[in-house]
């Protein structure tokens, strides 16, 4: 039984992190209708920038947690202004291809500059140990990453549902014409929301740095799991991303525990089942399907 509890907690810890990582993807899709394939590359950039800040400017983890999302917000704004915006009127496939191309460029650029072996990063002081209750152990850092992730997800959820800014953003996406008629500049909100989504990817990257390999390719595999999370949760749904993130984390942990070879396949089996039963995902709006 204690083993089962151990697996469950590990699953939830991983799941919280998945939720935060997928959140930016969900926000950008929900508001702009853009499937941002470069989300994994932006996650990688976040981790790489954190490692470079530490190595070259001695900027530690806690500061990076604040600085990197701000830098990535700027990067996201540039990306939207210079590239994504021009394709918004066309079929979503165009922006999917654009961001896919951007991913290749970013990954190769990081390889050229920082090599392929990866960059070192330490666990922040005080979070290096384990927390043990009876025979159940969890790494202190994993607990921190999970709690922090869920807190950010809740804050973003509240921002979108309980504040005036959130209301305007949601109105701009759900009924742009009517919102415009009420005197609100809809276009003004598109750029910052995109930047915000990219900043969330960067934040997830910083959070991954102490516990995962920081390489140019670190986002290439990860983005596939994130797409599974977003599809299971319902494209564009923030609550969906959180619930699906936790669900995927749990399914993965049980998979590893009881059928290790199939650990990653079960995630996609889950995705297929959800799409079969509810094509718009667990929390997606029906019209999306």
């Amino acid at each position: 039984m204690s083993e089962f509890i151990q697996y469950t907690l590990q699953g939830l810890a991983a799941g919280g992190f998945y939720a935060l990582s997928a959140l930016g993807l969900a926000v950008i899709f929900g508001v702009l209708g853009v499937v941002n394939f470069s989300h994994g590359a932006c996650y990688m950039l976040g981790a790489v920038i954190a490692a470079v800040l530490l190595a070259e400017l001695q900027v530690g983890f806690w500061v990076a947690l604040l600085v990197v999302p701000i830098l990535m917000f700027g990067f996201g704004v540039l990306m939207e202004r210079l590239l994504v915006r021009w394709l918004l009127a066309l079929d979503p496939l165009y922006n999917f291809l654009l961001t896919f191309g951007l991913t290749l460029i970013l990954v190769e650029a990081v390889k050229q500059r920082y090599g392929v072996s990866g960059l070192p990063y330490e666990v922040p002081a005080g979070l290096g140990g384990q927390v043990s209750v009876g025979s159940v152990n969890l790494s202190a850092y994993a607990i921190f990453a999970c709690v922090f992730s869920v807190a950010v997800c809740l804050a973003v959820g509240l921002l979108l549902t309980r504040t005036r800014i959130g209301m305007i953003v949601r109105a701009s996406t759900e009924a742009p014409e009517r919102t415009r008629a009420l005197g609100i500049n809809v276009g003004r909100w598109v750029t910052p929301v995109f930047g915000f989504g990219i900043a969330l990817a960067g934040l997830a990257g910083v959070l991954a740095a102490p516990t995962r390999a920081i390489t140019a390719e670190m986002g290439s595999n990860f983005i596939i799991i994130l797409f599974a999370v977003v599809v299971i949760g319902g494209l564009g749904s923030i609550l969906g991303a959180v619930v699906a993130g936790l669900l995927v984390g749990l399914v993965e942990a049980y998979g590893i525990a009881y059928a290790p070879t199939y650990a990653q396949i079960v995630i996609f089996v889950l995705m297929a089942l959800v799409v079969l039963v509810r094509p718009s995902g667990l929390f997606g709006r029906e019209e999306v399907a």
């Binding site: 151990q6 590893i256 525990a257």
Partner: peptide, 20 residues
């Protein structure tokens, strides 16, 4: 002997199993 999918990011549960 535990097989892990390739590539993998999350080894926490594999490590728990390896300690059993």
């Amino acid at each position: 002997s535990i097989a892990s999918p390739f590539p993998s990011d999350n080894f926490a549960t594999f490590i728990t199993k390896a300690g059993e």
